[in-house]
Design a protein around this nucleic acid. Structure first.
Lengths: 212, 212
DNA sequence: CGCCCGTGTGGCACAACGTGCCATGAAGGC
DNA sequence: GCCTTCATGGCACGTTGTGCCACACGGGCG
């Protein structure tokens, strides 16, 4: 029922994925500083000029890999029933978007592993860290209208922004720790969804004042 | 009592401030993309080569302006008495570091206004936004050991990281909204300290589940 | 006081980044 | 089969950031 994409558009989407894949592989192997834009272009089979038509900078080339999981999370959250509380809706969206047996398993199996390899290189690479932070800054802005629907009417806009920032940080830190911990594929407690839920709950627990 | 800095070291610190000042003024006026590194160097009275000895990239030149208030906040938080709860210590540190009549008024009057002008340019400038985010990412890391002292022993490291992220986001969003709202110098409710406290309280309020 | 060593600085050359401009060739509509 | 549209490639150019070397100035020592 979706209008079938034109042949040209399919090729464009294909080359974009191709560039992103090779960029992620090269960055993971040699770091962003050790890879030239021309190197990525050559690996992807396009000219240098074409590379810069798809991505504004060479570091931006990996954003499709980085945004994949987060965009799914945003979509699931936007589709949550309005009767849920904010914290409950956040937990459900996290489970739905990151669970390996969830409805979005297609994305998982394909790109999640290369995303993981990329995230392992993020902490030590200033350029990659910059894109990673930019992606989450945009996610934080996109979260505000989504959370507004779930919050009680008339909520202070500043409170809304803070909730968005906190929820976004939970997603970010969960993915970071998931990427940098051992694999253990059989352990569901080490999966991204479980870690994200722990982050969300640690958020409310850490701010509860123990001694009044 | 502190060993007086050598003559050369004072000059180095002076030129660093000089570069940062001119960089902030030029970036605020023309945006980061509209200013060349050579332009900043010329304005500061140094050669282009020397400029890059002080800052790795041209955008980094404004970090001293951006980190000023945040570093004060970290120091005040590290000096908080251990008997305080986390939320209470955060509020006190925010008031102490950002209050216009606080003990750090020297920094306030001097650099706070140029920092404010810089922050107004941050949202629309990708390059400036990138440094702003990097500064707060480093602050978030630095917050973890500081908060560990205030939290109850044996706290989950993940919960600690989440608390650091939330507190850091409060500081960041408070400074952003303070910079982008009207001046109203006589109104204490619009001051950076008051906004930061609202952010911290909005954080706990937004995560409290209203309907159990 | 005069010498010397360490170091901050400037100039130069260079690889890489990112963009504007134009020519080419293939996709899609008539 | 023709023509418009547009993705691509090649080229030139200003800018970024770095390595290398020469110079000058501050600071210590005989």
């Amino acid at each position: 029922m979706t209008t079938r994409p034109s042949l040209t558009e399919r090729r464009k989407a294909e080359t974009e994925r191709e560039i992103a894949r090779h960029a992620a592989a090269l960055f993971s192997a040699h770091g962003a500083a050790g890879v030239t834009a021309e190197g990525i272009a050559k690996a992807a089979g396009v000219s240098l000029r074409t590379f810069y038509r798809y991505f504004r900078t060479k570091e931006e080339a990996v954003t499709p890999l980085l945004t994949g999981g987060v965009h799914q999370w945003l979509a699931d959250l936007a589709a949550a029933p309005a009767r849920l509380s904010v914290t409950e809706a956040l937990e459900r969206a996290v489970r739905s978007a990151l669970a390996p047996e969830g409805p979005h398993a297609a994305f998982q199996a394909e790109a999640l592993e290369s995303t993981r390899g990329l995230l392992r290189a993020v902490p030590g690479d200033p350029a990659l860290r910059s894109v990673w932070l930019r992606v989450h800054a945009e996610t934080e802005e996109a979260l505000v209208p989504v959370l507004e629907r779930l919050a009680r009417p008339g909520t202070d806009p500043l409170e809304l922004r803070m909730t968005a920032a906190a929820a976004n940080a939970a997603m970010r830190i969960a993915m970071e720790t998931w990427a940098t911990t051992q694999a253990e594929p059989g352990d569901p407690e080490r999966g991204p969804a479980a870690i994200a839920v722990r982050c969300l709950r640690g958020l409310t627990a850490g701010l509860r004042t123990p001694r009044a």
